[in-house]
Computed example of a mutant assay.
Amino acid sequence: MSKFTRLLGEDSEPATGLWWFLVAVVAIFGFALPLLVGLDVVMSTSIILIYSILTLSMSYLWGYCGMLSFGQTAMYGIGGYTYAVFALNFGNTTVAVIVAILVGTITALVLGYFMIYGRISKIYFTVITLVITVTLEKAVRATSDERFTIGSVPLRGQNGISNVPDLQIPWDTSNVLFLDGVYYVALISLLCVFIGLRLLLTTHFGRVLMGIRDNERRAELLGYDSRKYQLGAFVLCGGISALAGVLYGVWGNFVAPEMMNLNSAANIVIYAIVGGRSTLVGPIAGTAIVQYLTSWLGTAGIGQVTVYLGAVLIVFVMVFPSGILPTLGNLLGRFNRRKSAAPVGKPVEQGGTIR
């Protein structure tokens, strides 16, 4: 494994000083960005940060636990809707954030318990999470009738819930966060999730998870209950997905069934594939790349954006089969090995030539 791939956090080694330095540099740049650009760039960057959190929750399960889950968008939608309903009913957005994350986490716990302790195969796990997500979206779309309300908040079916409250400052509920404030909350949330997941890999829990991913039967023969570790990871990532849903609702002041549709579920898989699901930086890079391409193709006036974007993604997958960052890391590793293995010329005592 090259130093580059280790720097990306592809193994369970402790984070190095260089890794912490690079994280600090990125954080400083992120905090300074709103001072350097306009509000339109801040808004577009905020949604990339939010999608990155959601993609991390999926790619961590897939890349480090071997569990491809389409259910993260279900927790994403549940988090967004719970925040909207609670905040509109009770007015306190700080409590609404906590409740939304808890509801998403508990939902993941219930669903994960029946799927993981039911010993279903990984392919059926993927299929069931996809079915749950699509079913939840259809159920929410069917709530158009005005009788479907929670408290005083009508769900409004496919029209979604508008006027989702802005985040209040916890110590001063009379003031709310505007666009730049939402950006900073999303940035801090992404940094906390990224650093937390990276540090989790270095713990006993994280190392066992990767062992289960590589060979579940061997891990169980060594005395580890794979179901317990997989459920713990699924619940953790469910809470992270719910957090992303809350931030999306705050960012757009709107939640809708589209948060949980098949397109949203597939998008985060694409983000992880493009960037590299075997790292933690890869999903963030993949999200930024695909979002930028989508925005650029849309503003360039090119028709059939989806077709062109699909062609670009196919090229990405063919050229970078394991993702952009892992592929670049492997190339750098090969280059360094060839450089270190190259013969070094030295003088020969007889003949006077140098090889």
Results as ranks from 00 to 15, higher is better:
153 V>S: 11
89 N>H: 03
313 L>T: 05
88 L>P: 03
296 W>N: 08
165 P>F: 12
314 I>D: 02
160 G>C: 05
55 T>Q: 03
342 A>K: 14
256 A>D: 09
128 I>G: 07
212 I>V: 13
10 E>C: 06
27 A>M: 08
295 S>L: 13
8 L>W: 06
113 Y>Q: 06
297 L>S: 05
286 G>I: 09
115 M>A: 15
127 V>R: 01
302 I>K: 00
7 L>Y: 07
289 I>V: 13
334 R>I: 08
294 T>S: 15
332 L>Y: 10
205 F>C: 06
271 Y>Q: 07
47 I>E: 04
2 S>D: 12
344 V>Q: 14
342 A>Q: 12
212 I>Y: 05
8 L>Q: 09
338 R>W: 13
114 F>Q: 10
123 I>L: 15
122 K>R: 14
163 N>A: 11
211 G>P: 10
329 G>W: 03
248 Y>G: 00
74 A>F: 11
87 A>S: 15
195 I>L: 15
271 Y>I: 04
322 S>I: 04
84 A>L: 04
112 G>L: 08
159 N>W: 05
240 I>G: 00
71 G>I: 00
273 I>G: 05
336 N>E: 11
78 I>V: 15
351 G>L: 12
235 V>H: 03
301 G>E: 08
325 L>F: 09
184 Y>Q: 12
294 T>L: 12
279 T>F: 03
202 T>R: 13
130 L>I: 00
246 V>Y: 01
48 I>H: 02
40 D>V: 07
21 F>S: 12
167 L>H: 03
353 T>G: 12
5 T>V: 05
64 Y>C: 02
19 W>N: 10
156 R>Q: 13
9 G>A: 01
92 N>Q: 05
295 S>H: 13
205 F>Q: 09
269 V>S: 08
153 V>L: 12
178 F>E: 14
221 L>K: 02
111 L>K: 01
127 V>Y: 00
149 T>E: 11
275 G>C: 06
259 M>I: 07
198 R>D: 07
329 G>P: 01
21 F>R: 11
31 F>P: 08
34 P>D: 08
273 I>H: 06
293 L>S: 06
19 W>M: 09
176 V>K: 15
58 M>D: 01
3 K>L: 14
233 A>V: 10
152 S>Y: 09
87 A>I: 10
167 L>N: 04
340 S>G: 03
146 E>R: 14
111 L>W: 00
162 S>L: 15
274 V>L: 15
353 T>I: 14
251 W>M: 14
